[in-house]
Design a protein around this nucleic acid. Structure first.
Lengths: 253, 253
DNA sequence: CCGCCGGGTTGACGCGGATCAAGGCGGGCG
DNA sequence: CGCCCGCCTTGATCCGCGTCAACCCGGCGG
C-alpha cells in the first residue's frame, strides 16, 4: 500500500504529480482514463477526446481557475497540484466545499445552473486538463462509455458530499478527513500513509466546520496519541486502522 | 404565488399530488417533463420514454422504495407523497440525507456505486415513476435533450447538498429549511406559503443535524415571533421575507 | 539588522445546543 | 373504555467547541 514515489523521504515529497501523458497515452491517473480505455486507445474517437481537451496552467497558489458567476463552458481535471472550491456569501464569509487532488474533476456542479456556483482556487502550483463541456456532451452521445463515465463522476461526487454531513465530534471529522485523503491518494497510486497537506489549517477547519484552533488541537492530540506524525504540513499516518475506526461513522462502508 | 389547490383550507390540504398524467400527457410536474417537451410530445421517441417508465405504488408510510445495498437498476420520480433517504451506520444510528417531494427524483447517487448507498423510505402514501436506468442511458445517447436533462438533475442535486453545509445556528438552518421546502413546492405549482410537513420533528432534526428538542424549540420561537403558524404538521409561513433573511447564509443567491 | 504579518499552537472562558427528564396529546388496539 | 406508545413540547443541566488572547515561528521587505 505504500510509496510508489520514486524518491520518498518524508520532508521532501512535494505534491504528487499525475502522469504527464503524451498525446498517445494521455494521463494515466486521470478521471477519464477508464473512459478512454473503454473507448479504445486506438480508435478514432479517442482522437476526438484529445481534440476537446486543452492543457492549461500553471496556476500559482491562490490563483483562480474559475470564479463564482463565470459562464459554464468546461470542466477541469486536475493534472497536478491541489484545488479548493469555495463559496463566499454576501457577508464575505468563506465556505470551503471541497479539495481536489490530481486526477479529480472540478466544475460538475455548474452544469445545472450553467454558471459556476463557486470559486476554484489553486492551493499549489497546478495544471489542468480543460474539457469543453458542449463538445464532451456531444461525444457522450456517440460514445456510451463517455456518457457512462460522466454519469459516474457526477454520482460519485454526490456520494462524497455526505462526508461532511452528520453531527460528529471534531475527532471523528478529522480522522475521517485524513482517511478520505489517504484513500484518494491511494486510488491514484500515491502513498496512502504519507503525504503533504496543501491546505492551511484554516481551510481544513472551514471545510470540516470547525475552528482553526480546534483543528490544531485535534492534530496535536492525534500526535500525542501516536496516531500520526506531523511537521507543518507533512503528514504521516502511523495508525491508519485506529483512524479509520475513529472516523467510521463518516466513512463509506 | 399562492394556492393552486382546488380546495385549499388549512387543516386539510393533504400532501400535494402531481398530475396523474394519462399516456398522452405524462406527468406535467415531473422532473422529466421538460425533457419530454424538448423531445416533442408527438415524436416516436416519447413513446420510448413511456416504454421504459413504469408506475409503481402505493407505498405506505415507513415502507421502503429501495434499501441500502440493493442493486441499482432504476431511478424513481416521486409522483405523489414524500420520501426521505437515509443511511444507517453499523451502530444503527440513522442519518437523514434528504427529503423528496412530488416531481423530484431519487436514486441518482446509486449510479456510481451501482448499488443503492442509502434507504429510501416513504413518509406518506406515495406513488412513483420507475425509470429503468440502462434503458434511460440508451435513450440519452439517442436524444440529447434526455442526456442533458440527466446531467442537469445530477448537477442540481450536487448544488443542493450544500444546504446543510456550513456551521450555522439552529435558527438559520430551520429558516433555510422551511424556505427551501417552500421554493420546491412553488416550483411544482403548489402553495409556497402553506403546506404539510410529512416528516416528523425527529427527521427534520436529524437532517439539519440538530436535536429534536431544538427543532421543537425553534419552531415555537418562530411561532411566538409571528414568523410562522404551525399546528402539528400543518405549516403556514407568515413572514417569508424575514425567514429568507434569517436563512440567507444557507440559501442560493 | 529589525519589524511586520500570516499561519500555527496553546490556554482560559463562555455559549449554544445536546442531553436528561417530565409531562401532554392523539391514535391504535385489546 | 382504558392502556400504551409515538410524537411533541418545555424545563434544567452539562459539555464540546467557538471565541478571545497570548505567544512562537519563518519569510519578506525596508
Amino acid at each position: 500500500m505504500d510509496s510508489k514515489h520514486p524518491a520518498g523521504r518524508l520532508p521532501e515529497p512535494p505534491n504528487p504529480i499525475a502522469d504527464d501523458g503524451d498525446e498517445a497515452h494521455f494521463c494515466g491517473t486521470c478521471a477519464f482514463s477508464s473512459a478512454c480505455i473503454a473507448a479504445g486507445y486506438n480508435k478514432p474517437e479517442l482522437a476526438q477526446l484529445q481534440c476537446l481537451v486543452e492543457h492549461v496552467g500553471p496556476f500559482r497558489a491562490s490563483e483562480h481557475i474559475f470564479r463564482t458567476g463565470d459562464p459554464f463552458r468546461a470542466i477541469f481535471a486536475v493534472r497536478s497540484g491541489t484545488v479548493k472550491t469555495r463559496m463566499v456569501d454576501k457577508e464575505g464569509r468563506e465556505q470551503v466545499l471541497g479539495f481536489y487532488l490530481p486526477g479529480e474533476v472540478i466544475g460538475l456542479n455548474a452544469i445545472y445552473p450553467e454558471h459556476f456556483p463557486c470559486d476554484a482556487v489553486a492551493l499549489d502550483t497546478s495544471f489542468f486538463c480543460r474539457f469543453s463541456f458542449p463538445a464532451m456532451s456531444a461525444l457522450a452521445s456517440r460514445i456510451p462509455a463517455v456518457q457512462k463515465h460522466l454519469f459516474r463522476l457526477l454520482s460519485k461526487e454526490l456520494g462524497s458530499a455526505s462526508l461532511l454531513a452528520g453531527d460528529h465530534s471534531a475527532d471523528e471529522r478529522m480522522a475521517a478527513f485524513l482517511m478520505d485523503l489517504a484513500g484518494r491518494y491511494a486510488a491514484r497510486g500515491f502513498s496512502a500513509t504519507r503525504f503533504h497537506l496543501s491546505m492551511s489549517r484554516g481551510d481544513i477547519a472551514n471545510y470540516l466546520r470547525l475552528a482553526a484552533e480546534t483543528v490544531s488541537r485535534v492534530l496535536s492530540r492525534f500526535r500525542s496519541q501516536k496516531l500520526i506524525r506531523i511537521e507543518g504540513r507533512e503528514l504521516e499516518l502511523l495508525d491508519p486502522d485506529a483512524l479509520r475506526q475513529l472516523g467510521q461513522a463518516l466513512l463509506p462502508d
